[in-house]
Amino acid sequence: MKQTYKKIPMPVRYVINTLLFVAFLIVGLSLIQSGVITKYYTKVLMLIGINIILTVSLNIATGYLGQLPLGHAGFMAVGAYTAAIFMTRSGLDASVSFPIGLVLGALMAGLVGVLIGIPALRLKGDYLAIITLGFGEIIRVVLLNIDSVLGFKLTYGAASLKGIPKETNFLNTFLCVGIACLLIHTMMKSRHGRAILSVRENEIAAESCGINLTYYKVLGFAASAVFAGLAGALYAGYLGILNPSSFGFMKSIEILVMVVLGGMGSMVGSVLSATVLTAVPELLRAFSEYRMILYSLLLITVMIFKPSGLMGQYDFSLSRMLEHVFNQKPAREKTNHKAGEKNG
């Protein structure tokens, strides 16, 4: 090669992405302020945001770590209830207690993730799926019945935890989505992220290279739980009422469907599929009864024509795209640089 491939230096990449993020935020906020995006669409956008966080977080465990946990709704429930109980009990002003609740929810879910991860991750494949499913259900059943064990009202069980301040709005959802995506992205680009990927590719090879399997599995699992907890806390502030039945097995499956549809191991795929799968049932409201059929048809169609998910393992990078454009102009003949795409 005569000419070296021009690369955009690292700080510039971050600046580009930050600018883009802020631009999106400002556009979104101004559209909401001016009423172009109505309250209804704002609600749908918030739900999309919450589902994006859920999907990218499960993507850590499923896509990057290569495990199949089926108890993701459980971690979401832990985050949601922790935040909700803190917000309703702390006596602080809602604008103060909500950010604290978000952090607490995420941390508590992470803690539960570690506790569950240590025994559960000794298993693989189907067995891991079953045991995480079991733990997810245990979390739900505990939330449902803990009051009668404790003897005082904590989660209010089946009667629902009510009166949670509705603090979730477009701004804080958007920020949380940004933070979650950024943290997951940087983690996956780091040494720890590469170790997690190596566990997915081949456990024996990874172990023989000196990678502590248990440590990295639990790390990935806990990171996944942390962000699920964050999403749960946002969900609590969105809904204003929590019932353990919202966090059942089907919720876990719903999130898993989003991950698989987007492509396991692709963050942009997760974001895209969470957006599409949340928006589609709402957009199809006009078709009333038929909307659930259309939703299922869409899922089936994608899975038939694109079994690896919408994006496979491809991850979108704006900087890489820009680099591609810059480098193509002077050197047209260079075609061998494909952006690491390996879909099936």
Binding site: K43, L239, S246
Partner: peptide, 10 residues
């Protein structure tokens, strides 16, 4: 409940 809220807002 989640859908109830979005539908109501709509």
């Amino acid at each position: 409940s989640t859908e109830a809220i979005t539908a109501f807002t709509r």
